[in-house]
Design a protein around this nucleic acid. Structure first.
Lengths: 281, 281
DNA sequence: CGGCCTCGATACCGCAGCGGTATGACCCCA
DNA sequence: TGGGGTCATACCGCTGCGGTATCGAGGCCG
């Protein structure tokens, strides 16, 4: 099976429509139809059920969609990492990705400690929107990632724990609830007049709800300071707070684990060194 | 990048020789040379250093070999799982792989419990030589595997623990050492006249050493019974022992963990059900 | 119920690019 | 210095990919 065929198949599966998939691929419909038919013949499996409204996946098609996406990501990863290795011009280097505006404390400690190691290679840090770290690791844009359980999906990676912490509620200073010694998550999310902000999902859309739509921690904290929202954050976020904000520990919020994750079988010296340093912290 | 190019590249990298790689691929040398050169041009990276003796990998080439092998395995896995799904003819099914002659106890319990579940799908059990389970999971010949830490490489899979047990030394009944209440690994491996048998590595070759070369647990036990060898096995192996064998607990051997492992993001109903059953055991 | 619209499939054609053979350029070693 | 080895280049034939034109099959609506 060639990656071209796989890309064609995934496009058709995602559009449920050969014509739309063809225009998305920048080609005409007939050759795409033929390519799909040929793929089905070669696999000995019907992948789609043709209907007058378009096409729908068979069971085998669902399998190929799931597995094929992973395979395409792996091929992309191979290509990207090779390009990056070449661009580094013989000298080893490594790309680390982390959520923008989080874990700065642990990350600083890790990077400092690693830089002090003998034989340390260049570490390029790429900050990206929350939730995208795993994807970057999977498709080769990064070699190592700082992830957060239970928010990120760590399946398929090797990982080491860096930090385990409780979560706290951040709310406007002077708010009646701000003097409490502790609170439950249920109480925190139902404070009148202080809705939780909504974060974009992986595809960029927002969940429904009363809170404001935001994509930046600084914006959120500003809004909290203005008395328009409250937010739940890991305990370490206290370090970055300016005036005008109050902190109340949450008694029943799940703990947040900060981990360093890397693709399995990553034998690159940079990744190995970073991970070794991390485990010693 | 097309899988054809990747296969060509991997062949050349493995042979360190364009001509040999070409004949292994069943093609002539010139088109292979050209395909590699073209791949290098498209990636913008030198993959090989040409020498009069053949070719050697550059750093970028090493990256592509490592990542490319994983990518090819993923493509193969997609293809195989799709074929299998189609062959099951709409009805869901799942392939479980395990080391031949081990863990029969837990596996039997697991399969029985799962078969009793409502909506259980067919489970095909494939027994294969030790150490090959992870590979089968990676290239799509199996959907779930029973693995053993620390022997198998579980990286890149999701897994749940089924059983943790100590290891014991199996030696001929009546042997002077067989009456001891406990022993260290160092002592066990240095009993005069009772060498440890050697197992084949993944590539089929045997490590050096004094012990007999064997590939079957039954053969080994027979040899032990004859007073020609001793062997270290997980505690549960006691259940399968016939007469003529003695068991001595080992005080410092690492514990053996039996786990059920599956590829991440495996949404197939069969895998999900098996795993759910396993966690309840 | 018939005409129309929207699907995907088929037929046919031109050309890009893959693989083959023949040959060249270079290096090592006798 | 020539012979045998390496990989690269030159050139050719044909497979097969993608393009346009068209068809056949279902829904939908007047």
């Amino acid at each position: 099976m060639e990656t071209r065929e796989l890309r064609y198949f995934v496009a058709v599966a995602e559009e449920s429509h050969v014509g739309r998939a063809a225009s998305r691929l920048g080609m005409a419909q007939p050759p795409l139809s033929r390519a799909i038919a040929q793929l089905e013949r070669r696999l000995g499996a019907d992948l789609f059920v043709r209907t007058p409204q378009g096409v729908t996946l068979t069971r085998a098609g669902e399998t190929l969609l799931r597995e094929g996406r992973a395979a395409l990501a792996a091929v992309e990863a191979a290509e990207r990492r090779t390009r990056r290795t070449a661009a580094a011009g013989g000298r080893a280097s490594v790309v680390l990705t982390a959520k923008a505006g989080a874990s700065s404390e642990v990350m600083a400690k890790l990077l400092d400690a690693y830089a002090a190691e003998p034989g340390a290679v260049d570490v390029e840090v790429v900050l990206s929107p929350p939730g995208h770290q795993a994807e970057m690791l999977r498709d080769g844009r990064a070699d190592v990632a700082i992830l957060h359980r239970p928010f990120d999906d760590t399946s398929g990676f090797d990982a080491d724990t860096l930090l385990v912490e409780d979560q706290v509620l951040i709310l406007p200073a002077g708010h009646p609830e701000s003097t409490r010694a502790s609170m439950t998550v249920a109480e925190a999310t139902s404070i009148p007049g202080l809705p939780m902000p909504r974060w974009p999902r992986l595809d960029g859309s927002y969940p429904d709800g009363p809170g404001p739509e935001l994509r930046d921690l600084t914006q959120v904290l500003q809004l909290v300071r203005l008395g328009r929202a409250a937010i739940v954050l890991p305990d370490s976020a206290r370090d970055n707070l300016r005036d005008g904000l109050a902190v109340v520990p949450l008694s029943d919020a799940p703990q947040v684990t900060t981990l360093i994750a890397w693709p399995p079988h990553s034998t690159s010296p940079g990744v190995a060194g970073l991970v070794r340093t991390a485990t010693r912290l």
